[in-house]
Design a protein around this nucleic acid. Structure first.
Lengths: 260, 260
DNA sequence: CGCTTCCTTGATTTATGTCAACGTGCGTGG
DNA sequence: CCACGCACGTTGACATAAATCAAGGAAGCG
């Protein structure tokens, strides 16, 4: 099981916060590792959350459906990322989650998440950080859709996903490849699939991106970045400010036996 | 001080979670109530967060600046809402916050936020819920900009703000009025100010909205809602699921003396 | 072989952006 | 009190990014 958990551990590891005890507490929280086929709906809109789901391998997407049936993809779920982190706090979900590829997931019972804070403030803080990152990703998405033209949006999104993959422990030939069709690009970035196609072609003709067979590949990261003014720092994919590390160092993980 | 804190208490109150002890712990966390003039920049992009700021009265807006100087407003900060809730967890902010009106704020030192979880899991859970709501607001914003036309975006945003004001303890003649100029509408919803103007006029000519003198007023909530398919439930502005309430009831607030 | 998914392309329409200008109300300083 | 600047809203003419409609091709799969 340990090796499968690695993207989550890699992601958390960038924080430099967790002790070995915290990590093993995290492992004990994770239940029910399961494998699913592509296309499965993991969470449907308006249904209550069953559990917080951790994506161990594979990609998912999070979307909202409009009254007329169109869908807006609001975020992706990459390996090491979570679904419904604060699920316990809402009576109903407000988005759906679907698998883009086959995938392996684990679950944390919704109610356990809230008790993590009592068991280990350090691990609780790490979960908050995940929540904070998710908000930042969404904020970037607002900026892309609100202010950039079609080709820039695509470039910017690909670079963000690349940054996130690196953070989650992937390395560079692989972190540049993404299981994204042009239809997904269109639904995520608020454009028609025809326009998505023309914009992808344009990026392809510059030699910056490939897009075929349901895969998109970043070819010229730097050129893409200057094309869309991508700021690679925004994720702050670094360690926590040292003040926080010191402040939280005093807590033992003794309490960890409380959970489960 | 107590009366000034009311929008925050009103907001938290909708959860039905906090005990009187939790509430007084919250009050003790809040430092430095201050009054500011309209237009003040409370947080600048790329600067570290100084503290988590709680808006007690007045409106703020959260935005990102692009390389070419344009800005995308990503969210509003209403009375009872927070800025930089997880500020301690990031080395740098990734957005700026500016006051739209004169305002009263209080602060929670960034590092204290993380210790709340140890002191009171209930209050910590309430803070997570705030973080979760912020993410939902942002997600709605993505959907609006990505999939709706200009007039619908405006209608939808106004209705969301109305819902949030109600949640934060405002009542209806007041909760329908918002200190929003057409330029702000344009920057928030990804359209030119000319187009924002024409769309506001259109809504005004239907008698659904007023927009003059830097104020927007919702006149016909129901018609607006059907015009843009607004789902008033999405905020889940209700109590927590009862399971969570029971699960968290067991913790005493005894530990609250640890903080501060 | 026929179906589906994904990508591609051309013709046309439409929503929205850009440019330029003007009105109004308001506060400030002369 | 008036003059001026400024923020806000308004309008028209024009340009353009992007949506829509319609069709077809290539690859994979049962």
């Amino acid at each position: 099981m340990d090796s499968q958990l690695s993207p989550l551990h890699a992601r958390m590891g960038t924080l430099g916060l967790l002790t070995p005890d915290d990590e093993s507490l995290l492992d004990r929280l994770l239940h029910g590792v399961r494998h699913h086929p592509a296309g499965l709906q993991l969470q449907s809109e308006k249904a209550p959350y069953r559990a917080t789901i951790v994506m161990l391998a594979g990609w998912g997407l999070r979307y909202k459906t409009l009254a007329d049936g169109r869908r807006q993809i609001t975020n992706f779920v990459l390996p090491g990322e979570t679904i419904g982190l604060y699920g316990a706090l809402f009576n109903r979900c407000d988005h759906a989650v679907e698998l883009m590829t086959e995938a392996t997931t684990a679950e944390i019972p919704c109610l356990d998440v809230m008790e993590v804070f009592a068991a280990s403030p350090r691990l609780g803080t790490a979960l908050c950080w995940i929540g904070g990152q998710d908000e930042r990703f969404m904020e970037q998405q607002v900026m892309r859709i609100g202010k950039m033209n079609a080709a820039q949006r695509i470039a910017h999104m690909l670079l963000e996903l690349h940054t996130r993959l690196l953070q989650n422990g992937f390395e560079d030939p692989w972190a540049l490849q993404m299981p994204i069709t042009q239809a997904v690009v269109a639904d995520a970035l608020g454009m028609s699939h025809v326009h998505a196609n023309r914009s992808c072609r344009m990026l392809h003709e510059h030699g910056w991106v490939d897009s075929q067979g349901g895969q998109m590949t970043v070819r010229e990261q730097d050129q893409l970045a200057s094309f869309c003014d991508y700021d690679p720092d925004y994720v702050n994919g670094g360690k926590l400010p040292s003040k926080v590390l010191h402040r939280l160092a005093k807590y033992t993980s003794a309490a960890s036996s409380k959970v489960h």
